Simulated assay, not measured.
Amino acid sequence: MTSLSLMSCSNGGEATGGAGGSREDVSLVIASWGDPFTSATQEYLVDPFVEETGYDVTIVDAPGKYVASLEAQNQANNVEWDLLDSTSAPDAYIAYDKGLIQKMPDSVKERITEALPEDAVTDFGITWSILGYITACNADAVAACPQNTTELFDTAEFPGSRTSISTSPLVNLSLAEIASGVAPEDLTTHEIDLDRAFAKLEEFKAAGGTWWNSGDQYMQVMSTNETDMGVGYSGRAYAIAEDMTNLEIHWEEGLYNPGFWNVAEGSAHSEEAWEFIEWIATNPEAAANWGQALGYSVPNPESFDYIEPEIAETLADYPENREELANMNFEWYVTNYQEVNDRWQEFLRG
Rank of each mutant, 00 (worst) to 15 (best):
N246I: 03
S297K: 04
E248M: 13
K205N: 13
T150M: 09
E114F: 03
G160L: 10
G13Y: 06
M1G: 07
G291H: 12
V182W: 11
W81G: 08
P258M: 12
T155C: 13
G230A: 03
V334S: 10
G20T: 12
T135Q: 14
P258G: 06
W274R: 10
A141K: 14
E323L: 09
E203P: 06
G125M: 11
S86F: 11
H269S: 07
F158E: 09
C9H: 15
S5T: 08
E346S: 10
A139L: 12
I101K: 01
S32W: 03
I307C: 06
W332F: 15
S69V: 12
E323I: 15
A95H: 05
V60K: 12
T150P: 08
N138E: 14
D61V: 07
I307Y: 03
K65L: 13
F330W: 14
R236E: 12
D317P: 08
D123I: 09
N148R: 03
W251A: 04
D140P: 06
M1A: 12
G295V: 04
D82H: 11
V67M: 00
W274H: 07
N341M: 05
S180W: 02
I130W: 07
L348K: 15
L194H: 09
K109P: 00
D216N: 10
W279A: 08
A312P: 02
G34L: 13
S69C: 05
V221L: 13
V182C: 07
G125D: 04
L294K: 01
G291A: 12
V79T: 07
E110L: 09
E285S: 03
A68N: 13
E24I: 10
G64S: 04
W332G: 00
A89Q: 09
G12W: 00
P36A: 00
I59E: 06
